[in-house]
């Protein structure tokens, strides 16, 4: 038996909306520690890792580890039916191939029950090493979204360069070139407005912009985003979900032949 209750159905809805274009099907692994998901896009270029800790839920019960394979577009269809302030309760047991989503309005006057068919998904999970990165940049998530969208109108790829003074995003295309340079900014009223650059060694990597633009769909989930880079390694783009976990996106770099 699995049962978990979230104060805001809207949170899960936003999470699924932010990842469902990259991965259409995924298996949620449920255990005493929470709900996890790891899935690659069909081209095996990017990966989504979602972690929702059990202590971030209002109620969480998983008698034993349990896998729930879901079509994320179908899941999104159901989650869209939740009211803005509804609570969400998820229920499933191994006896039937269904997960139930219960949406309850704040005054308890409306209770909606949606049952989603579970599916068997064969997927390969990758072991992601817990590596030290050469450079870590934290910046407002809206700023990162603006940068990748702006550069996406110029070129297909972005060259990211981190030095101790700044982080540069550069793109070029048929119409010309663009470079956006962000300096470290620590003296802000709100901590989420900071741009923090931690550099062990300078890095310079090139990535396909369309994936980064896709990752930035998670902008509404967190005020700030953390980008971790090491030479010739996939970049990590992390959105922390307050009090419950994170959604991380990994993207393999372009490699010089």
């Amino acid at each position: 038996m699995f049962e978990a209750q979230m104060a805001q159905a809207a949170l899960l809805k936003q999470i699924i909306e932010s990842i469902r274009e990259l991965i259409t099907e995924a298996t949620f692994e449920v255990s005493g520690t929470g709900m996890m998901l790891q899935a690659m896009d069909s081209s095996h270029v990017s990966l989504v890792a979602l972690n929702l800790r059990s202590d971030g839920f209002q109620l969480f019960r998983a008698d034993r580890p349990f896998s729930m394979g879901m079509n994320l577009n179908h899941m999104a269809k159901m989650l869209k039916c939740a009211g803005k302030d509804d609570t969400l309760t998820m229920r499933a047991d191994e006896a039937n191939d269904l997960v139930t989503f219960l949406f309850e309005s704040p005054g308890n006057e409306r209770l909606a029950e949606f049952e989603l068919k579970l599916m068997d998904i064969t997927s390969e999970n990758l072991g992601i090493p817990d590596a030290e990165y050469s450079a870590t940049v934290s910046m407002p998530s809206a700023e990162f979204q603006r940068i990748v969208k702006d550069l996406g109108s110029i070129g297909d790829t972005v060259e990211i360069t981190v030095t101790k003074d700044d982080v540069r995003f550069a793109a070029s295309g048929d119409i010309g070139n663009a470079t956006i340079k962000c300096r470290q900014l620590l003296d802000t009223e709100k901590p989420e407005d900071r741009t923090l650059i931690e550099m062990v060694e300078p890095v310079n990597l090139t990535f396909a912009l369309r994936y980064l633009i896709n990752f930035s769909k998670a902008t509404s989930l967190a005020p700030s985003v953390t980008i971790k880079l090491s030479t010739e390694m996939p970049v990590v783009v992390e959105y922390k979900l307050s009090d419950i976990g994170y959604v991380r996106f990994y993207l393999a770099p372009k490699i010089e032949d």
């Binding site: 690659m40 081209s43 095996h44 270029v45 990017s46 990966l47 390969e124 999970n125 990758l126 072991g127 992601i128 090493p129 790829t157 090139t206 396909a208 390694m233 996939p234 990994y250 393999a252 770099p253 372009k254 490699i255 010089e256 032949d257």
Partner: peptide, 14 residues
């Protein structure tokens, strides 16, 4: 000319 890397080249099977 740069080619797109695949994740399997960087991360092993779990």
């Amino acid at each position: 000319k740069a080619t797109q890397g695949r994740l399997e080249s960087f991360f092993g099977p779990s």
